[in-house]
Design a binder for these strands. Structure first.
Lengths: 340, 340
DNA sequence: TTGTATGCGTTATCAC
DNA sequence: GTGATAACGCATACAA
């Protein structure tokens, strides 16, 4: 929002003093927060972060290119469990090493202390994924001079933060088109966590394609990306008269949960039920039957994030970059035409 | 012991105030140094440390030997693919974070440049796994003052390098005992990479138990820890007259390969063939049927390595530590008595 | 009480 | 001068 400026006050770039005034503290304390110092209370830290965000403080120089000291990049994620994180990590590590940088792994726990860690270490840049940082946290990191790239953000990212992602909506559509082409008409879909952006996009793409083809409504439930809840939800969705003949799970792990539900209900895959997953983690190919799924280029995603980070770090870019990598359907043995 | 107090000088335990007086500073500053706070100059930090030493100050409760800036530990592995690396990473990360340290992930590529990386960064310590460092590399790291801990070394480690591992030989035995108790007598086993220490140990344990029970010879092949080669090797081992009724795979991933071989040969698990794996990665529980396997406490292994590294780093230890964590049989549905 | 920890501002300093 | 950082100690809260 443009603030009208009736008086003689010139809209100069905000300083730490401005931030301090709003946060109700001193300039050194603001500085301390932005440098990741220890002697600041959580409340004060939050107040400063909020003030930083509200005045849009940004450091004058993005950061010393810091010529030849070995550069450390932070890879921040909520946890390293699971194949997705694993693959992303591989991609990040490889691209970083190729560029001569090392990667610090930072696990973002709920308390938000990871922000201090990154700030304190004067990180040369952070790649953030599987975490939903608050806008105040993002603002603090930027104000601290840490270049950022988000991978597949959970929420809509602030418009001034770079990000990479995949064509989630498109992937959902492709999954639906495949099943429609096989002749399916009754569908169920299992989303991840309600409100996660990529879950929404995948489901929307799926539903959009189904509707466009004049297919019936899609029964949708959510299972927080986890296997066991997906199995429970799938069991409920499938244990009805006139049950769906095909299920779209928004992750491979949840698709494995659907396999389990099918086993419990005595449904054979793909004869009685077709299943499509999303991600194409290695396990997808090992299942019985091997899973038809929408492939994300996960490692490439990590590599792309590193390359983007290095661009953000060095050059100041005209526009905030946003890159989308294509998803791709991988047809294996878990899908077939519906039983007559 | 009750100390009588004849003179006026009472030998009481030193306090922070004493330290502060000698260091020529305030009590809070001393406290900050001991707590690893940020707002202390290097000179003051040193003065305080010296004073602490001279008066022999000791905290009431033992405290983390922080005293210095937050520290970066290196976790070096050959690649981060696979659940094993994933779980180990989780354990390492958690233990390091709990101790207030960050983890740099270093992938050891064949060229050995990782050693330079670690040395140049003056790493505070390195945990090495899934890599077989040459003795020259280990010597270089030690000469560079980098404390080391190996996790489950591939070769016999030099006697002056600390390591943690699991009871591999024992695990092999337990697998065999389980199958013997079910009534199996004809066995095959699939090793990892020929020459890897833990592969050897697992196979030896297995064979030792079989022989002790008077069982027949165990047919052994190697498959480099990978799924597809394991499938091929298993197919060959099982496609013979009087085929084995049970297979021991030295990793879960290879056990999944055995599942595939069984499918190709039309053998049902566990009716026609019992399978035991090793590791107990999450996927083991998802297979159909869920895999009976020898569990390694992988994350604990990583955590133990971190704790050992911190001990090696700070205290000088009497002996070179070597720690072994116990393996444990997890019985699921892939084993049953042999068909009559 | 005495000992210790925390959080903030003050003062000094540095880079333009 | 202005904007920012560095490092100390004061005031206070907390603990045995």
């Amino acid at each position: 929002m443009a603030v009208p400026n009736p008086s003689s006050i010139e809209p100069r770039r905000p300083t730490l003093a401005d931030v301090a005034a709003i946060a109700g503290t001193s300039v050194p304390t603001v500085s301390k927060v932005l440098r990741g110092g220890t002697d600041v209370s959580l409340a004060m830290r939050r107040a400063v972060m909020a003030a930083v965000e509200s005045v849009g403080y940004a450091p004058r120089e993005p950061r010393r290119p810091d010529s030849d000291a070995p550069v450390l990049l932070d890879f921040v994620l909520s946890d390293v469990h699971g194949s997705w994180a694993n693959q992303a990590l591989t991609g990040v590590e490889e691209a970083a090493t190729d560029a001569g940088h090392d990667v610090v792994l930072t696990i973002a726990r709920g308390d938000g202390t990871w922000v201090q860690h990154v700030l304190r270490r004067r990180s040369a840049g952070a790649i953030i994924t599987l975490v939903d940082p608050t806008s105040a946290q993002l603002a603090a990191l930027r104000a601290g001079g840490v270049p950022l790239v988000l991978i597949d953000p959970m929420s809509r990212p602030p418009s001034d933060v770079a990000s990479v992602g995949v064509t989630n909506w498109d992937g959902g559509r492709v999954a639906a088109e495949h099943l429609l082409a096989l002749g399916h008409r009754r569908f169920a879909a299992i989303g991840g966590t309600r409100g996660h952006r990529y879950s929404r996009a995948r489901l929307d793409g799926f539903q959009s394609a189904v509707q466009q083809a004049g297919g019936g409504p899609v029964l949708v439930e959510h299972a927080d990306w986890r296997r066991e809840p997906a199995a429970l939800v799938a069991e409920a969705l499938l244990d009805v008269p006139d049950r769906p003949t095909a299920v779209f799970a928004c992750s491979d792990l949840m698709a494995i949960g659907v396999y389990e539900a099918a086993r419990r209900l005595g449904l054979r895959i793909p004869d009685d039920l077709s299943v499509v997953g999303f991600d194409d983690v290695p396990e997808a190919a090992w299942g019985s039957p091997p899973l038809t799924t929408v492939r994300q280029p996960i490692a490439e995603l990590g590599a792309a994030a590193v390359r983007m980070l290095l661009r953000v770090r060095t050059g100041r870019l005209a526009a905030v970059p946003r890159e989308e990598l294509a998803t791709e359907l991988v047809v294996r043995a878990s899908t077939a035409p519906p039983a007559a």
